[in-house]
Write a protein that binds this DNA or RNA. Structure first.
Length: 271
DNA sequence: AGAACCACCTGGCAGC
DNA sequence: TGCTGCCAGGTGGTTC
């Protein structure tokens, strides 16, 4: 579910409801996420004002007065505001209680996500090694060109490496490569400046279009208010093996890179 | 350096 | 209806 656009959609949806509010505690029903939820979460968030909501790659950062909450949605996580009178469901593992009434409820059937606390996100071992933000000013064709020199890995693996570029997952790597006309197996270090320029532009525009559509509604993705996203309707290749390419009509192909499915059009995407 | 696996975990779905 | 096997948005780690 959650790649950069989905996390950004959640952030934008929650920010107006959380900024300026105050937490009064946390209820942890299932601490066994990817890493254990801190045992002292309740005590450390109690009476803490929420100063800001930001995002780094696929992590949502909630700035409190003395700590930062790091939330990762893993493969199946969601975060939404709900009424405290609504009973938690089977996979509603953590509630963050707001002073003004509602609860921020973390739901994650597969439990690949994480809720962590840190006094200094810049030095946190999960955040510090993250690569460039693909929506930042610095992310341009020339950056992509320089960063990919001497890299013999495939361009798709390169795009999905969070230590190089933060936030691009399987869906948007596939979609951006299609839009840029680049075959996913192309060696990263072999891309010309021109193609790096085109790819950087398409990565940005694909992510921005997905955010504008409210994210992708795979399975049960919902934003902070429980609304679905609509970007899935715009997929060119992801999840469409055998279906006609929306551009040329050839059948979309599927292959495996590592253990991830790669979708591409053999006609529109060149090595 | 990079590719391939594995691990973590649940649920949906196809096929029998 | 029910069982089995496979698949899924992530990602740190190990091994070759």
């Amino acid at each position: 579910m959650p790649e950069l656009p989905e996390v950004e959609t959640v952030r934008r949806g929650l920010a107006p409801h959380l900024q300026g509010q105050r937490l009064v505690g946390a209820r942890v029903r299932q601490p066994a996420l990817r890493w254990p939820v801190p045992l002292d979460l309740d005590a450390r968030v109690r009476e803490q004002p929420i100063l800001s909501l930001s995002r780094r790659g696929k992590y949502l950062l909630v700035q409190l007065a003395t700590d930062w909450l790091l939330v990762h949605l893993g493969m199946s996580g969601s975060l939404r505001l709900t009424d405290p009178g609504i009973d938690p469901g089977k996979h509603d593992h953590v509630d963050l209680l707001l002073a003004n009434g509602p609860v921020l409820r973390y739901h994650d059937p597969r439990r690949f996500g994480a809720i962590l606390l840190t006094p200094d996100p810049d030095r946190h071992p999960l955040l510090a090694p993250l690569g460039i933000e693909p929506l930042s000013e610095a992310f341009r064709g020339e950056w992509l060109y320089q960063a990919s020199r001497q890299r013999r890995t495939s361009i798709k693996a390169f795009l999905m490496d969070a230590h190089t570029i933060a936030g691009i997952g399987n869906i948007y790597a596939n979609e951006a490569l299609f839009r840029a006309g680049i075959h996913p197996s192309t060696m990263a270090g072999r891309l010309s400046r021109t193609r790096c320029e085109r790819l950087a532009v398409q990565i940005r525009s694909t992510l921005e279009a997905a955010i504008a559509a409210g994210g992708s509604s795979l399975r049960d993705f919902v934003d902070g208010q429980g609304n679905p996203g609509y970007f899935q309707q715009s997929y060119f290749v992801y999840g469409r093996p055998g279906s006609p390419c929306r551009t040329c009509g050839h059948a979309i192909r599927i292959m495996r890179q590592g253990n991830r499915a790669t979708f591409y059009c053999p006609e529109c995407q060149k090595r």
